[in-house]
Design a protein around this nucleic acid. Structure first.
Lengths: 127, 127
DNA sequence: CGGGATCCGTTTCGATACTG
DNA sequence: CAGTATCGAAACGGATCCCG
């Protein structure tokens, strides 16, 4: 478990469990990474990078390490030249998918709702 | 809608809707605020502050304004002396509660799972 | 009572360059 | 190929002081 997650998990007694979820899933690209690993079962670093919108290696590496530290993804290193590293979901990671779906679903509805309130919407509006 | 949310809502085309949810719900105290407003229907600033663990007024104010800007809470100002300000959930805010519950539930399970892996756990361990 | 103004330390994201 | 090292910019949470 990475330090940030550990701090929140341990210091919390009351009803703020939601913030634990956000600490674990709330990084840039993390929901997308988890969804891609559901679709593809196992992905190499470069494959993940291409399927996402080419985040910098620095950023992608950090997100993957955090997910690994928090126990959601499993990282397998093949010691060979050129190097090969595979990522897949752990049991805990698979268990997070329903929540990721819920986040995606509500976020999509929210975005649609908000776009419908914009002045010059490009969507066909009945009027 | 606050600027951060607007940026994310507009610039996103693909499957990253989950990050919209996190942008809206991911601030400090926000899930707790929403839960408290479900329990109490309507709360004044000072009541909210006491029910939470006394965050600084600066911080609580910002979270409430962001929730208001994003359309989840409704702020009502009574122009009187001393001032009185009430907060309640909007329709959109009530619609977020199932997601808040899902975050709370998964976060609680995650925390419990992780605590069970700690070396010197204080919980009674069968062994 | 319910904030606003100001300042600060930390975290986070991201770009660029380099490497086993 | 899969990163690491270094740097900069911005966002965030929080403390302190002040106000109508």
């Amino acid at each position: 478990m990475r330090e940030k997650t550990a701090r929140i998990v341990q210091e919390w007694t009351d009803a703020c469990d939601a913030e634990i979820s956000i600490a674990v899933l709330g990084g840039a690209w993390k929901p997308s990474i988890l969804s891609l690993l559901r679709e593809h079962e196992v992905l190499r670093f470069g494959e993940l990078s291409r399927l996402l919108d080419e985040p910098t290696a620095r950023v992608l590496t950090r997100q993957l390490r955090e997910l690994e530290d928090d126990g959601l993804v499993i990282r397998t290193v093949y010691r060979q030249v050129p190097p090969k590293v595979e990522y897949r979901l752990s049991e805990l990671g698979r268990g997070s998918l329903p929540l990721v779906d819920a986040l995606t679903s509500w976020g999509g509805s929210y975005a649609e709702h908000q776009r419908s309130l914009l002045p010059e919407a490009s969507a066909p509006v009945a009027r």
